[in-house]
Write a protein that binds this DNA or RNA. Sequence first.
DNA 1: TTGAAAGCGATACCAG
DNA 2: CTGGTATCGCTTTCAA
Lengths: 332, 332
Amino acid sequence: MTDHKLGHVAVTIKEVARVAGVSTATVTRALSNPEVVRPTTRERVREVAASLGYHPNRAARGLITGRTGNLGLLVPDLANPFFPSIVKGVQGRAHEADHAVFLADTDEDPAAEAGLVRKLAKQVDGIVLCSPRMAEPELRTLAAEVPTVLVYRRIAGVPSVTAEFLDGMRQAISHLVALGHQRIAYVAGPRRSWANRERVRSLRAVARKSGVELCEMGNVAPQFHGGVSIADRVLATEVTAVIAYNDLVALGLLHRFAARGVAVPDDLSVLGFDDIPLAEMVHPALTTVALPKEEAGQAGVDLLLRLLDSHQEVRRELPTHLMVRGSTGPAR
Amino acid sequence: MTDHKLGHVAVTIKEVARVAGVSTATVTRALSNPEVVRPTTRERVREVAASLGYHPNRAARGLITGRTGNLGLLVPDLANPFFPSIVKGVQGRAHEADHAVFLADTDEDPAAEAGLVRKLAKQVDGIVLCSPRMAEPELRTLAAEVPTVLVYRRIAGVPSVTAEFLDGMRQAISHLVALGHQRIAYVAGPRRSWANRERVRSLRAVARKSGVELCEMGNVAPQFHGGVSIADRVLATEVTAVIAYNDLVALGLLHRFAARGVAVPDDLSVLGFDDIPLAEMVHPALTTVALPKEEAGQAGVDLLLRLLDSHQEVRRELPTHLMVRGSTGPAR
DNA sequence: TTGAAAGCGATACCAG
DNA sequence: CTGGTATCGCTTTCAA
C-alpha cells in the first residue's frame, strides 16, 4: 500500500458506490445521465456524493471518453495588454462551459509554438491559438493534428475568429480625412505578422479610394520601443497624421514626440489599433480602432466547442469601432 | 497489418512496444528509467519512440503515479498588468521544469477562488495562488487540501513568496524626504488586501521614524479609476507628494491631475508601487517601487516543486527597488 | 534484463 | 433500472 502522506485523500467513485450501496456504474449514471436512474436511487447517490465531496477525476474520465474537459490557449506575448484581454475572454467562457484552460506564452517565438501545441495536445480537447507569425503550412499541419481555432488570424480551412480590419481602417481614414489630413504615415508592425499584412492591405485600399497620400514606414517590433525607435523618422516626413500598427507602438511614438516637444494632436495626430486599456490612461488619450478582445476569446471558445461537437467548420468576424480620443485633431 | 497513420491518432506505448519488439514495461523503463535497461534495447526503443513521435499520455501516467505534471495558477485580475508579468514567470519556469500550467482569473472575486482551486486540485500537483483578499482561515484550509504556494501574501504555515515592502517603503520615503517633502499622502488600496495592509504598516513605521507627516486616504479600487476617483481629494489636502497603493492608481491620479491642470512633478510629486510596464510609458514617467514580478512567479514554481519533493516548508522574500523617474521632484 | 499482469479512476457496453 | 466487466494508456510489482 503506497499512499502519499499528502494529508487529503481524494474520494473516488468506489467510495461513493460503497456508501450508497450501489455499483460504480450506477454512481456514474446518477451523476452524468440522471434520467436513466430511478429517482430514489439517484437522489441517494447524489446526496452521498455531495456529502463526501466527490468530484470525478477528469483525467481518468478523459482516458475513456476521449474528452478531457480542458482547452489549451497559446499567446505570443502576455506583456502586450492585448493578450491578457483575450485570455480573460477565453478563460471566462471556458469556465462557464466547465472547461479548464492551459495557458502558454510563447515569448514571441514562432518556432517554439508548434512544440508547445503538441505537448499540450494530449491533455486538451482543442486549442485556441493566437499565432500571428507561424508559417501557414505549419499552422495547417498543426490544425490537422488537434482541433484548433485561430484567433486574429485567418487561413483557409481552419476555423478562426478575426475582426473587420477593412472596416476599421475605413473608419480611421474617414475620421482623419474629416479633420483635414491628406498625408498620413503608417508605421508597420512585423513583416510576417498576419495582422500587419491585413492592416496594410486594408489601408492601401482605403487610402487609394479616399485619395490620401500614404507614407509607409517600418517594420518595427509590435511594442512600445518599436514606436519610440521610429518616431524621429516619422517627424522627418511631412505628414500631419500617423497610424501605428498597434497601440503599444502608438504609445511609443507619443512618448518620443513628447520628449521632442512635438504637441499631439496640435502638431501631429496619432492613431492606434487595438484599444488596449492603456489607450485611455495616457495624455492625450489615444484615438484608436477598437478590436474586440474578450469577445474574440469567447468566440474562440464557442467555435472550438462547437467544432468538437460536430466537426463543422466555422468562421467568425467581429466588428471594430473607432474610439476617438485626444490624440487626433485637425490637420495643422 | 501495419496501419501507418501519421499524426491524427495518438501513438500509444503499445504501438511503440510492438514496433520495437518489446513489452510495454520495457518501453516505460527505457524512457523514464534508462539505466535499468540494456543499452542496445534502450536505444532501439528510444529510436522507435522518437520516429513514431511518441509522447506518454500524462493523464494516464498521473493516474498511477499520482503526479500530473501540471500546475495551477490563480490570479485575481489579468487586466492589472502586474499579474501578466507574474503569469509569465510562472509559465516560463513551469515549462522549463516540463510542467504545464492551468490558468484561472478570478475576476477579483475572492468568493469564487476556493471553488476554482478545488476544481483544479484534481488535475494538478500544486497551486500557485495570488489571492490578496481571501480570508486567512479559508486560505489555510485550502493549503491543507492541495499543495499551495502563496505569491504576494504571507500566512504562517503556508509557503510563500513576497517582497520586502518595508525596505521599498524606506527607499520611497528617503527619496521624497531628500527632495524636501514633509507632508505626504497615501492613497490606500482595498482594505482587506494583504498588500495594502503591509504597505500601510511599513509606511507608518517609516514615516514615524523620518518625521514625515502622513495623510492617509482611501480605500480605493486597485485600478485606474480608483486613482481618478480620489485625485480631487488629494488635491484638497495640503500635501506636496502622494504615494499610491499601486501604479494603476497612480496613473489614475496622474490622469486626473493632468485634467485639472496640476503639473507633475512641479506642483505635486506622485509615486507608485509595482513598476508595471506602463509606468515608464506615460508622461511624466512614473517613479515607483519596483516589485519583482516574473521572479516572483519563478520563485513560486520553484518553491512548489521543492515542496512536492520533500514536504519542506519554505518562504522567500524578494528585494524591491525604487525606480526614480519623472513623476517626482523637489517639493514646491 | 525482461515480460506478464495488476491496477489507477472512471465510463460504456451488455446482460439480467 | 442496475450490476458486472472490459477498457482507456501508463506504471509498477513480481517472477522468470
